[in-house]
Nucleic acid binder design. Structure first.
Length: 560
RNA sequence: GCGCCCGUAGCUCAGCUGGACAGAGCGUUUGGCUACGAACCAAAAGGCCGGGGGUUCGAGUCCCUCCGGGCGCACCA
């Protein structure tokens, strides 16, 4: 049901309860939390509520008795009389609402009026959100787990925007740490080797082929580096080599349809003195102390398990020092909701970062971490073993070449972020016609084809206000329409709970209901009123599918 | 040892913050194209929701406990 209709019912219920209590038909108790939802079972009406059930405890009355009293007051309300044809008390004490046909007309008109915006909403309290995700070290190509983070983060950003928040997407580039140093030295070694010099490869360096390719690129563009001082050359690679890697990562993600508003460089954080600043602020807040030559952050005072070192005894900052400064900077830039997507190997990090946010004087509840579980690629039913350190892994580009952008994104978004994902490459590639993504896209393309056919026959889609919705009475028609009406709700739920996978499931349900409708009912060439109504239902389905796929970042093809 | 995630159909997973008979995709079996796309539809088989306690009118969902799997617990990033 449309959210606006649901709101009407919810308010009517609250009013009915208050009136029944005022008149003494029900004892006085504080209004409980209750839900107004679309029942799974269609014989239970268009909307149902558990108000009477949850009132049983506080009132001491049997649920059905409460429900009966509430219904008496509901039926007197003009808003309900207009909207609802029948109200029943069912099961243990549910109140079920059966809507008049007018709701379908309202759905069509809403879709006509809102078009591409159908499903979106204005937030009651819009927030400035900074969503940070992927943030892989700039030392190699995107790997599969980064791709999942990219898909999830991108979709989440779309969702939060859709419910009215102001969202910015950010990628944190760790270009100042040990990994960047190792990468530079690996690049340096390959460069010298290609130039015909003796050069030992660093012990924990990056052995991947891409490093050699990048070295070759530098040898062509900067042959003079051979004569440069070793430390100077490494510094050059740490700067330019990393920059080039970041560029390659940007291009790779762009091919996946993922774009960031900002690539935030850790390097800049250090150069602008923001790490010192942040630590100074912590010091002023009494959050730092010295012990055994190191500087510690007393994070336990803000709920962490143990205190953390921020400046090592050798004078170097820890990774965390920079990260504290980075998160402070996010707040300084004015965001009031900071969301990070991290891998499961970082979950032990949440407590200390939360503590840091609090110690800096910000509300830790505005800081949220989504832990995204890992991906296992399956080939021939067997996991594909990967090791970044050994230089053996499947890159995002390789995945795209194998299964395509739409299938990859859809697969990544099919599971809850907190669940491990098994990605079956054989299924995604060799049996691509079996993929859920094609099933959904097919429904969209099929509707596009229908309208091409209609156009050739000189039939045009009517205005929503002209559709005789009472002609849509078959179960395949009403069930489809009910599902379409739930779209704004689905978007809101997926956004509020940060669960993009709801959308892929919803899309499959809509596609399934449409295919069933299509198989059971002739559209073109039926009696004109019916033809128009079914065309409009098809149009509405297409709008919802397109909007849903756009939120997912998956294409909605006209032909396939 | 402590913390987090996960145990639901043969496989991979949903399950609307506690609701009305437990769902989907893949796989298996069977049927359906001389009108709009068969990348589709229809039907069937398949489950003590890991085990055991508890809270509740009501538990796959919340609490306790045990079992099994994954990942964390650095002056690494």
């Amino acid at each position: 049901m449309l959210e606006s209709d649901r709101k009407v019912v919810r308010q009517a219920l609250s009013a009915a309860l208050a009136q029944a209590q005022a008149k003494g038909d029900l004892p006085v108790f504080p209004p409980p939390d209750f839900v107004v939802e679309t029942p799974k079972e269609k014989s239970h009406g268009d909307l149902a509520t558990n108000l009477a059930l949850v009132s049983s405890g506080p009132s001491g009355l049997p649920p059905r008795q409460i429900a009966t009293a509430l219904v008496r007051y509901l039926e007197r309300q003009p808003e309900i009389q207009q909207l609802v044809g029948r109200i029943e008390v069912a099961g243990p004490g549910f109140i079920n609402f059966f809507f008049r046909e007018g709701w379908l007309s309202r759905l069509f008109r809403a879709i006509e009026a809102e078009g591409d915006r159908f499903g979106c909403a204005r937030a009651e309290r819009p927030r400035r959100v900074l969503l940070e995700y992927v943030s892989a070290n700039p030392v190699g190509p995107m790997v599969v787990v980064n791709a999942r983070a990219a898909a999830v983060g991108d979709c989440l950003a779309n969702l939060l925007s859709a419910i009215g928040h102001q969202v910015e997407r950010e990628y944190y580039v760790n270009d100042a740490g040990r990994q960047a140093e190792l990468f530079a030295r690996s690049l340096n070694a390959r460069y010298l080797q290609l130039a015909g010099r003796e050069a030992p490869f660093p012990e924990e360096g990056y052995p991947g082929e891409y490093v050699t390719e990048l070295a070759a690129e530098f040898l062509r563009s900067h042959p003079e580096l051979v004569e440069m001082e070793e430390s100077e050359r490494v510094a050059f690679f740490k700067e330019k080599g990393v920059d080039r890697m970041v560029e390659l990562q940007q291009q790779e993600l762009a091919r996946f349809g993922v774009h960031f508003d900002r690539w935030y460089r850790e390097r800049d954080l250090h150069r602008a003195g923001k790490v010192e600043e942040a630590l100074e602020l912590l010091r002023q807040n009494g959050a730092l102390y010295e012990n055994e030559g190191a500087t510690w952050f007393a994070s336990t005072r803000w709920g962490d398990d143990k205190d953390r070192v921020v400046v090592k005894s050798d004078g170097e900052y820890t990774y965390m020092a920079a990260d504290i400064a980075y998160h402070r900077d996010k707040y300084e830039r004015g965001y009031d909701w900071v969301i990070d997507i991290w891998g499961p190997d970082h979950h032990g990090y949440i407590g200390r970062m939360r503590a840091a946010v609090a110690a800096l004087g910000y509300d830790p509840d505005t800081f949220q971490v989504i832990i995204l579980q890992l991906v296992t690629l399956l080939r021939g039913g067997q996991p594909v073993r990967m090791s970044k350190r050994a230089g053996e892994f499947i890159t995002l580009d390789e995945l795209l070449a194998e299964v395509g952008k739409d299938a990859a994104r859809f697969f990544f978004l099919m599971r809850s972020p907190s669940a491990h994902l098994d990605f079956d490459l054989d299924l995604a590639r060799e049996q691509s016609e079996q993929n859920p993504v094609y099933y959904v896209q097919y429904a969209h393309a099929r509707i596009a084809s229908l309208f091409r056919q209609a156009e050739a026959a000189g039939v045009t889609r009517p205005k929503a206000s002209q559709v005789a919705v009472d002609l849509l009475t078959a179960p395949e028609e009403t069930e489809l329409a009910r599902k379409l009406a739930a779209f704004p709700d689905e978007v809101r739920l997926a956004a509020e709970r940060q669960e993009p996978h709801r959308l892929t499931h919803y899309a499959m349900e809509v596609a399934s209901l449409y295919h069933s409708f299509y198989a059971h009912h002739r559209i073109l060439g039926t009696e004109p009123g019916l033809e128009a109504a079914r065309l409009y239902l098809s149009h509405a389905t297409q709008v919802v599918l397109r909007n849903c796929l756009r939120l997912l970042g998956v294409g909605a093809p006209e032909r396939m």
